[in-house]
């Protein structure tokens, strides 16, 4: 919204600076239009922000008032209890102690999954026939809900970090793989033909045409999957573990401590949000490109 406003201002400014100075009346019309527009936009933005703030306050107040009256406190806890729990975990170091395991599994799993996906997708993306052979099996593996493999990984790799890393990698792998293959396969035929006629060798074609064309797809997938890696790690912790944020949540649940469960969910949500925001620039790293969408979401 702010951007649109700015663009309009310059446009009007350019109009005023025409070689032939417009008559006074015209200048007045232009200036009036500008001030009126700015005023409306400002008023509108204020209303929107007030409404947003109102909703936030309203939800917290409604939560506070309804807890213990409309809904049993057991179900929803109370805002101040959740806040107190967050402060307590921060002060006694629980948050960081558990957080480090989840984040370690997340990052290692993310890198392993992404690297494996790219290394496998690279040759398959360039060899259409090999890809067609592999495709049905990849779709097959993709339709196995990753969570169902949680117990398998735990059984194979124990209760420590390894199964969480593998689960995180598994959550990352398919999205990166599918997007990387798509990146290699979507290169417009025309670009390839023109380059071949210009005399491109196979290596030159790959370097100048195919690789640059695939990179945005890979980056978009890398951006979308870091949160997924964290979800994989947390699922592993839910199923079986004695530390990590997922453990924090399920431990609180088994003690029927609602405030603890909500606080843990809140922390995870904040981390995922932070990771999402942090990686947003990855989608548009260069001047030439206009961004690519990945069709896969958070779980």
């Amino acid at each position: 919204m702010g951007l649109g406003n700015g663009a309009r201002v310059t446009a009007v400014g350019e109009r005023i600076a025409l070689p032939r100075p417009p008559a006074d009346a015209a200048v007045r019309v232009l200036e009036d239009t500008l001030t009126r527009r700015q005023a409306t936009l400002r008023a509108r933005r204020r209303t929107v922000w007030l409404a947003r703030l109102g909703i936030l306050v309203g939800v917290i107040v409604a939560w506070e008032l309804s807890s213990g009256t409309l809904v049993r406190t057991f179900f929803v806890s109370r805002p101040e209890a959740v806040a107190a729990r967050l402060v307590e975990w921060t002060l006694n170091g629980d948050l960081f102690w558990h957080g480090q395991f989840t984040l370690t599994a997340t990052f290692i799993g993310y890198m392993v999954g992404a690297l494996a996906a790219i290394l496998l997708a690279w040759p398959l993306g360039l060899m259409p026939r090999a890809y067609r052979v592999a495709e049905p099996y990849i779709l097959l593996a993709y339709s196995i809900p990753a969570v169902a493999l949680g117990p398998v990984f735990i059984l194979w790799f124990g209760l420590e970090l390894l199964p969480k890393i593998i689960l995180a990698a598994y959550f990352v792998f398919f999205v990166v793989f599918i997007n990387t293959v798509a990146g290699f396969r979507q290169v417009p035929r025309g670009l390839i033909d023109v380059s071949l006629v210009m005399g491109a060798s196979r290596a030159a074609l790959f370097r100048t045409v195919i690789l640059p064309s695939a990179v945005p797809y890979v980056l978009a997938a890398l951006r979308a999957t870091l949160p997924a890696a964290m979800i994989g790690a947390v699922v592993g912790e839910f199923i079986a573990s004695n530390r990590g944020l997922g453990y924090l949540a399920s431990a609180a649940a088994s003690e029927y401590e609602t405030d603890g469960v909500i606080a843990a969910a809140f922390v995870m949500a904040v981390i995922v949000l932070a990771l999402t925001v942090l990686l947003r620039p990855l989608g548009r790293v260069t001047r030439w490109q206009r961004g690519v969408d990945v069709s896969e979401g958070s779980l």
């Binding site: 947003r52 964290m230 649940a253 969910a265 995922v272 999402t276 958070s298």
Partner: peptide, 21 residues
Amino acid sequence: EILEPYLLAFYSIPKIALAPL
């Protein structure tokens, strides 16, 4: 317009985190 930030926040929250709850 008003709900947008909440929608985006809720969108990126892992729903799976609510499983224990």
